[in-house]
Structures are given as structure tokens and as C-alpha cells.
């Protein structure tokens, strides 16, 4: 990770070597930033396999467009943008598949919301619970929620990275929060009833 100037210089050096076709240098770059990219992808998709696929696809995309990399911006910013956009594409395609073919999605989507919620009450697995709620949101609301509330991006960054207007980000975030809050509230009341 870029913790200092020396790391930035190392990254720049690896990028310039990769541009000239040095695959070993690019391999080092991948190893250097894989953890960072995986964390973003996982916190958006909540599935390690999907996150790994997105990370690989992101690095392939970076390799293809390395020549277009603007050295004035941080490499992590560029990587973040690519990973998030690929995650968003994946969320949208999952949503389409669900709508058209009624296909099951990832490991969590295979579980019905009710099952998942029951399990989360028992396990007190809040991540699982929030994920099952998030999976039921429309793609725009889901990605905005993931970026703002799970990854702590501010609204301006979210708007820029997703290419949405600020007002659209806020509206989607409001709807997502309100929906999830209502679901949490229901779960809480059920939990209280169960305890009684």
C-alpha cells in the first residue's frame, strides 16, 4: 500500500516497467495492491469468490489501459474507481439475471431473506443480516449504500466514482437507509418478542 513517498515511487517504477511490457513488474504491482482491491470488492459484493473475480478483472483492465494512467492521480484512486465500477456492473447483471431468469445469485442470495434473517437472529450475524437486506435493494441504491455506509466514501467521491449526480446519490442513499432501517426495526421487534 502507498504509505509514503518511497512507496509511491516504487509504484510509479512498477507502472513504468509494466508499460514497457515487463510482466514481472506488473505481477509485483498486483501482489502489492491485491489486498486493497479485494477489501473494496468484498465490502461491496460480500462474496470472496466474486470479489476475487472482480479484482482479477480490474488488474487485467489496468494492464490494458496502463498507458492511459495519469501519474498525477494516485494509483489507488484509479484502482478504486475500476474495482467499484466492475462491482456495480456485477450487481446490475445479477439484478438483471434475477429479474429475467429468476436465477439464484451468490451464496447469500441463495438463502431467502426470511431464512437469512432467522439465521442472523440466532447467530447475531449482523453483517449477514445487512447483506440480505442490501441484496434486495435496487442496484443503484445498493452500490450507493455500500460505498457510503460500508466503505465510508463521502457523497462527493461516490458521485464522482459512479458518475451519478450528487442529488441522485443522496436520494438513493436516503431510500436505501430508510428501507434497511425499517427492516432492522422489524428484526429488532422480533428479537424482543423471541426473548420474551
Amino acid at each position: 500500500m502507498e504509505t509514503g513517498i518511497s512507496n509511491q515511487n516504487k509504484t510509479r517504477e512498477l507502472i513504468s516497467k509494466s508499460i514497457s511490457g515487463d510482466t514481472d513488474a506488473f505481477r509485483m504491482l498486483v501482489k502489492e495492491y491485491n489486498g486493497y482491491a479485494h477489501a473494496i470488492a468484498y465490502k461491496t459484493l460480500f462474496n470472496h469468490d466474486d470479489a476475487r473475480d472482480v479484482v482479477q478483472e480490474s488488474f487485467i483492465r489496468i494492464w490494458k489501459h496502463l498507458r492511459n494512467f495519469n501519474p498525477e492521480i494516485k494509483f489507488t484512486t484509479w484502482l478504486y474507481k475500476i474495482v467499484i465500477n466492475l462491482c456495480y456492473d456485477r450487481i446490475k447483471s445479477r439484478n438483471r439475471s434475477k429479474l429475467i431468469f429468476n436465477e439464484p445469485g451468490d451464496e447469500y442470495e441463495n438463502i431467502s431473506a426470511a431464512d437469512s434473517i432467522e439465521k442472523s437472529i440466532i447467530d447475531n450475524d449482523q453483517v449477514r443480516m445487512i447483506l440480505s437486506f442490501a441484496n434486495e435493494l435496487p442496484p443503484k441504491q445498493k452500490i450507493v449504500f455500500m460505498m457510503r455506509d460500508i466503505q465510508n466514501c463521502n457523497v462527493e467521491e461516490t458521485s464522482e466514482l459512479l458518475g451519478m449526480s450528487l442529488s441522485s446519490v443522496k436520494t438513493n442513499l436516503f431510500n436505501a437507509r430508510k428501507t434497511i432501517a425499517a427492516r432492522i426495526s422489524k428484526i429488532e421487534s422480533r428479537r424482543i418478542n423471541n426473548e420474551m
Binding site: 498486483v30 468484498y42 479484482v55 453483517v127
Partner: peptide, 14 residues
């Protein structure tokens, strides 16, 4: 919310 630590698969991904 507490998230799982991502398994680091640098070598595999690379």
C-alpha cells in the same frame, strides 16, 4: 458491523 478478514491470495491472483 465487523467484517471477515479477506483471505489474502496474492500469489493466486497474481
Amino acid at each position: 458491523l465487523k467484517f471477515d478478514e479477506s483471505p489474502i491470495e496474492d500469489e493466486l491472483v497474481a
